[in-house]
Each structure stands twice: as structure tokens, then as C-alpha cells.
Design a protein around this nucleic acid. Structure first.
Lengths: 188, 188
DNA sequence: ATTGTCGGTTTCAAAATGGAACTTATAAAT
DNA sequence: ATTTATAAGTTCCATTTTGAAACCGACAAT
């Protein structure tokens, strides 16, 4: 299977990576969140080739993550700004940075820190539950088959669309999702 | 600059992507969080070539994200389990999935949902502040130069180590970090 | 008239990737 | 005892992606 085809999987992680999972792309977005907007600045800061940068920026514009904004007439020049869709990746970038702060820092400490203007403190991002507000630790979260996958299953395919239809149900889903099905067999 | 060298940047996002930013790697971790642990299962579910999968799994073991656990003698077989370091990527994977749920779902809805066993509800992950518990919306978070970057700057290099030492300070940092420096010029 | 800047495009060699065939250790079936 | 099957790789090679460098076009500044 080619990487280009991962968006065929019925999985939101795969679909997200189909948009931002290419080399350099998440670093471009990091820089955008840190105030960089122009081609030449991205290029110098990332050390990426013009060729590659052009391609990545085009894809981000095509997918609606960035938009071109004219910043000068004669000659017309555009800069790249995060759209609402792009701004919504803030959490992804924060969590990537937080993991790096915790697991990849040397003795000198975290390269970048975050100040939460709501409270004025230097803080870390935590995952909390949209409903009860309590922390979402890995052990407290159970994935379940959602409506999107339900429908795919009704059509004979599973999360891994590339497998086709000629396989057992338990091959169409990863173990924890399969278990969630058999343990809560369609309340409907 | 080669992708392989991004870990030279004094940036936790870059360092994290140096570990998990290769093609397939975050999908391998997604599957691991969904209960997949064995080579043949990863391969079938992802459609990745054995060659590539071997390389990626080896790198994840080398970097301490996964560990090999013997699950059968004769012939000895190992499966791949998330370490504490790997489990700590849960937030990254959750946020990637949540963005995909919101921006890449078709009419049929989210492929996968999450139940928070703490409260029993189907929930979404939210980012909240470790200090005050309030939401960390993009507009309420200001990045600042942390001790790691401080030290790099003291050594003449900035976030973009590949630029070397012969550049102005404002070229060593992205705009928002540079501004954070000039606006809060070292309380020490 | 010349040089510089920004944002590209083109070209080409080197590196990464995907797919298929092959390997090794062992269990299971005939 | 021989054949078949399985899991987890390894090897090989054609195809794709990437990186570096050169080139280009519009204009401003000198």
C-alpha cells in the first residue's frame, strides 16, 4: 500500500495524517503557530528545499489548513496564514511539543514554554474530558466503533479498507474496537 | 537539510517528530493503542511492506517507545508493547483523531468515538491548563523561550541550529518567540 | 543599467519506499 | 518421514520521493 492511499482507511488518525503527515508539514505548522508566514522565512528556518516547501504549502492550501493572503502589490506577494481548520491543529502541535519537552529535553530543560494568559502561569497542556472535565488518562479511555465505522461495516469494509470485503469481522477492526462491539452489541 | 537532521533543532516538536514523524509510525502507534501488538497484525492492518515495518518497529524500540515482549518460545516470538514513554503519546494520537473526526468525517460521522470510563460518557478530548484547569485555546497561549533555548542562545545558536551562529538574534527565533524575549527581557 | 529580493520552477543525482521473492525455526497435518 | 503452514523477518530491485543547486520573472532600489 502506498502512503498516499492511507486516507482510504476509515480512521480519523489516518485521515489527519493524510493531510499533515508528510515530512516537514507539521514543522511548517509549528512555525506558523509561532508567527512565521512567508515562504522565504519558512525555508530559511526549516532548511527545507524550495521545491518541497512549495509542494507542502500548496497541499496545505488545497486542504484548507492554510490560506494565501496578499501582503504586497507589485509584485503581488502572498503569505500563508492558518485558517480556522489550521488553528484547530493547535492541540496537536502543543501535544507534540509537550511530549518532546518531557522525553527529549537535555539537561538544559525545555526549549519552549507556554504561558497561559488566562491565569498568567507557565503551564503544561493536559487532556481533559469534554463532559466531566476530569483528566483523560490512557487507562480511562475506551475507543468504540462510531457511526462512520458502523456504516463502513454495514457496507462490508472495516477500518482497513485496503483489505477489501473478503475477511472476517475481527480482521476488519483492531482488537479493542472488536471487543467493544461484542461487549456492547448494538443497543439500537 | 535532510529530514534525518531535524532533531538538531532546539525544538520539542521537531525532536518528537524525529522519533515518530516518519511515514507509518504514528499509524503503528494508533494500532498499538487499539490493541494490536504483533508484526503480522500491524502489517496486514496497515498494508505497509515488511521491510518498512521492520525498520519502523526497530526505531520505535531503539527510541524506547515500544518494547519487545516474548509471547512464545519455540520459535521465540516477540510482540511490541507500548512503554511508559509510548503510552505518553496517547494525547498526541487522541488529538490527531479528534481533528480528523471534526474536519475529515463524511456524512456518516466519526469512525471512532471515545468513552471516558471516569464519567461513562462519549466524550471529546479537550486541552486544559495544568495550573488553572481552564481551556487552552490558541489565543490564550503564548510561547516563551524556555531554559533549553536560553542556553542555546547563550551558545550562539537558536532554534534553527542549522543556520549556524552568524545570524542576527531575530533570525534565530520565530517571530513570536523573539517578541516574547524583547517584551520580557530576562527578569533574572 | 545593474543589483537585489521574493517566490517560485526545473533539473538531476541520491535516498526512501513498495512489492515480491526468499529464509529460518518450528508446529501441525498427512 | 514428508509436506504444509505460520510468524517474523531479510534481500533485491524498480519506482517514487527527496534535496541541492541552478535558473526565472516581477519588480524595487541604487
Amino acid at each position: 500500500m502506498r502512503w498516499e492511499d492511507i486516507d482510504q482507511q476509515v480512521c480519523s488518525v489516518a485521515r489527519t495524517l493524510a493531510v499533515v503527515g508528510d515530512r516537514w508539514t507539521l514543522l511548517i505548522l509549528r512555525d506558523a503557530f509561532l508567527g512565521t508566514h512567508r515562504f522565504e522565512d519558512f525555508r530559511r528556518q526549516l532548511g527545507v528545499s524550495r521545491h518541497r516547501l512549495t509542494e507542502r504549502l500548496n497541499k496545505l492550501v488545497d486542504t484548507g489548513v492554510l490560506e494565501r493572503v496578499l501582503y504586497q502589490q507589485r509584485p503581488p506577494r502572498y503569505e500563508y496564514r492558518l485558517t480556522a481548520k489550521g488553528l484547530d491543529l493547535h492541540g496537536v502541535v502543543l501535544m507534540l511539543g509537550d511530549w518532546g519537552n518531557r522525553w527529549c529535553s537535555d539537561e538544559s530543560g525545555a526549549p519552549v514554554e507556554y504561558r497561559h494568559r488566562t491565569c498568567g502561569q507557565l503551564v503544561r497542556p493536559m487532556l481533559s474530558c469534554s463532559e466531566c472535565g476530569e483528566p483523560m488518562a490512557p487507562t480511562t479511555v475506551s475507543p468504540e466503533v462510531g457511526p462512520g465505522l458502523q456504516q463502513a461495516l454495514a457496507c462490508g469494509v472495516g477500518m482497513f479498507a485496503e483489505l477489501g470485503e473478503g475477511v472476517e469481522l475481527h480482521e476488519k477492526l483492531p482488537p479493542l474496537l472488536y471487543k467493544s462491539l461484542t461487549r456492547k452489541p448494538e443497543a439500537s
